[in-house]
Design a protein around this nucleic acid. Structure first.
Length: 423
RNA sequence: GUGGGCGUAGCUCAGCUGGUAGAGCACUCGGUUGUGGUCCGAGAUGUCGCGGGUUCGAGCCCCGUCGCUCACCCCA
């Protein structure tokens, strides 16, 4: 009787050895700048009350209207697997009253997110993001710092073929004035029903329409940047000057539209040129009303989410991933049943001394075990048989040149530590 | 959700106009008794994604299904 095999659910991306090493590296490079800037970890649930997202992210977004993994739990609650990170962070900050303490609240997070889309290059149903949020202060210098942290993450990866686009969605007054004129402008166009519906939900979305005739039609549409209030315009100017001073290249893209409704003010996106259709490797922006909408104080915040999967694809495309598979310092080959126990004990002691140690398991011939040691990339090898155990001495073999040296087992840790430094 | 391409050994793939499967790499063992990387030799492995149909006969044709992939859409 043979059992049927299982497959991973559709659209999930898994990282197995040896590739997982690269994934781990990318994630670390992306988030380390945030740690260095004083952002602290927030570890949150992957599922939340469905309303948190429909209210926070916005009903008009595709993310909420057709991409959420929503189900009822055993208590009859409507639960949704998180499609993005910011709403959950806000909920936790409000719930724990972190916004009553010193501001800004600076946090980072990392984990998987879920959207029920058709899978594609760089687009998965479960994907990984790292992100940060700086909550509670509306200071353009924070905007610049947040962008700089994201940019440093990509620089850490060695990426070059990416660009930063920024714009400002202004404050409430700016958007209201613009929206009125935009709707008037749409009336002069003959839009099909679907497009009209999108425009009704969020007029800005038409700027993202990729059909040639729409791109043409939107060319003379009023631009939000021209409607910024004096204060919003000044803020945006400051952000730009800070970025210039930081030496971070950017271009202003007044037609940029983000997929989440909560964005206001400074908004940005990192785009990589070698990734095909799914080119966004990260993005974020300020969200003035989000916290209040979610039942908290009317505080502003800004943050970003960076795509770990896509950043990895970008690093692969630019060939910047280091070849750093795990290699051990010492490979122990026990010969015969008697030496197994000693091999385990010696390995344990060496690891306690931070020496990376592997053991050849199973009943392989010595030749096969040596081969395994060689392939593992181990720098030294010892064979442990009856003779070695009774003499308490092993031949420490250096794999690079095959040379050996007699070493007392008790002295192995010291000897290896010395040898590994001078090598 | 819509459309195109694909699905053969662990991996990369070949398999001509239908006649019941191969290569390279990897893997295991060996080249005399306890020392790797080269070389030589030997060996194991597939319900040809799954289900149904056409046919004397299907990996090759048809339908369905699952998955992968690319694009639309959308976004990380």
């Amino acid at each position: 009787m043979k059992y049927e095999k299982f497959q991973a659910p559709k659209g999930v991306r898994e990282y197995l050895p040896p590739e997982s090493t690269a994934f781990e590296w990318v994630r670390e490079q992306l988030i380390s700048p945030a740690r260095l800037a004083g952002y602290q970890l927030m570890e949150l649930p992957v599922f939340e009350d469905t309303n948190l997202f429909s209210r926070g992210v916005g009903e008009s977004t595709d993310v909420v209207s057709k991409e959420m993994y929503t189900f009822e739990d055993r208590g009859g609650r409507s639960i949704t697997l998180r499609p993005e990170g910011t709403a959950g962070v806000m909920r936790a900050v409000i719930e724990a009253n972190l916004d009553r303490g010193q501001l800004p609240v600076k946090v980072w997070y990392s984990g998987q997110y879920f959207r029920a889309e058709r899978p594609q290059a760089g687009r998965y149903r479960q994907f990984y993001q790292v992100g940060i949020e700086a909550i509670g202060l509306d200071d353009p210098a924070i905007d610049a710092e947040v962008i700089a942290i994201a940019d440093r993450g990509f620089k850490n990866l060695g990426l070059k073929k990416y660009s930063l686009q920024i714009t400002s969605l202004g404050d409430a007054a700016s958007r209201a004035a613009h929206r009125a004129d935009l709707v008037k402008y749409f009336a002069t166009l003959s839009l099909d029903e679907v497009t009209q519906a999108r425009a009704a939900l969020n007029p800005l979305r038409l700027f993202d329409d990729k059909r040639p005739e729409m791109i043409e039609a939107m060319k003379s549409a009023p631009i939000l940047l021209d409607y910024l209030s004096k204060e919003a315009a000044e803020n945006f100017e400051k952000v730009q000057s800070y970025l210039k001073n930081l030496g971070i290249a950017f271009e202003i893209n007044p037609r940029m539209v983000r997929g989440l409704d909560y964005y206001t003010g400074t908004t940005f996106e990192f785009v990589h040129s070698e990734l095909g259709a799914q080119s966004g490797i990260g993005g974020g922006g300020r969200y003035d009303g989000l916290m209040e909408i979610l039942g908290g104080q009317p505080l502003s915040g800004i943050g970003f989410g960076l795509g770990v999967d896509r950043a990895l694809l970008a690093a692969i495309a630019e060939n910047t991933v280091p070849q750093s598979a795990f290699t051990s310092d010492l490979f122990i080959i026990p010969l015969g049943e008697n030496s197994r126990s000693d091999a385990l004990r010696i390995a344990e002691q060496l690891r306690a001394a931070k020496i990376r140690t592997e053991i050849a398991f199973g009943d392989r011939a010595l030749k096969g075990a040596m081969k395994a040691a060689d392939k593992s990339g181990a720098r030294y090898v010892i064979v442990l048989g009856d003779a070695e155990i009774s003499s308490e001495t092993v031949e420490l073999k250096r794999m690079t040149d095959g040379s050996t040296k007699s070493v007392k087992i008790a002295q192995l840790a010291n000897e290896l530590q010395r040898a590994l430094i001078t090598d």
